[in-house]
Write a protein that binds this DNA or RNA. Structure first.
Lengths: 151, 151
DNA sequence: CGCGCTTATGTAGCTTGCTAATGTTAGCTT
DNA sequence: AAGCTAACATTAGCAAGCTACATAAGCGCG
């Protein structure tokens, strides 16, 4: 298998396993990876955000976010609030009940990162991150302008 | 955001975009990423494989593979054949009709890898791959023995 | 004012991950 | 031989990606 192919295979594998492990650790707390990511981003945004911005921060499409928010709303962890002066938009707000959940989810995600990555040499991790960012940029360019030339 | 957190974010983002782009390129050919991965692995295994081994090679659980195979069987691209001497197992065999599809899918995946990765310096890509493999190993260890000690 | 473009969100339906539970067959063990 | 356990496949049901379409509101232009 070529270096390129191995890279892609490893990428998928790591992402998938990470998701599975994260999901498993959250099972007891009623959360899932998708929802917990939304909670964390919301919390990092100061507790509220426009739905549109949230989708972008999570790197998911709007319909995906809608379902995550439906779930969180059902659990009483967020509210969709109308935005004064813009009847289309919603502001997503963390409720008080969300605080402990955010705390727990944050602990789990941080703990998992630490456990998995602690013995990877910083320099190599930085190189890997740089590569991933290059690849992400490349993918986004190809994704937005796929027709015509050969980039 | 910490280096660790950035790494995880980048990882997810790249994997997700890769999937989306791959899916988009295959849309015209009736294939999807999951099924096409199964086809490629099958082809690389000489055109047939035990279902169990296929799941492992794809890094997916059995039920996931079952559905992929259901789809491929419906499209007439594979057959499930009984294994002489082992009535539990299935041997998955590529049909003749699969050859051109495999060809196309292989071209798309190779082309995508090439387009996205061609300008990443080999040395950095190798480092990134090494990191990913370390992480994968770590995740698998944590996944199989999560209870008790702190690894 | 109304027509149409854009923006923001939501709905429908597909795919593909997963776990848990169900059968069925094979292989041991007693 | 009967019964337990392990292996292999499947089904059921949930989660979370996606695209395509729908709904509704703001904005601009004639």
């Amino acid at each position: 298998m070529s270096l390129n192919a191995e890279f892609v295979t490893a990428l998928r594998r790591v992402t998938q396993r990470w998701r599975t492990l994260w999901d498993a650790e959250l099972r007891g707390s009623g959360q899932t990876l998708g929802r917990s990511r939304a909670l964390l981003i919301l919390s990092q945004s100061g507790g509220s955000a426009m739905q549109r911005d949230l989708a972008e921060a999570l790197s998911v499409e709007h319909p995906t976010l809608v379902r995550l928010l439906d779930g969180l709303e059902r659990q009483g962890l967020i509210r969709r609030e109308p935005v004064p002066g813009n009847a289309r938009a919603n502001r997503i707000v963390l409720t008080d009940a969300a605080a402990p959940v955010v705390q727990e989810v944050d602990g789990v995600s941080e703990g998992l990162r630490e456990r998995v990555l602690h013995d990877i040499p910083r320099a190599e991790l930085e190189t890997a991150l740089r590569v991933l960012n290059m690849v992400a940029a490349r993918l986004e360019k190809l994704g937005t302008a796929p027709e015509g030339g050969q980039g």
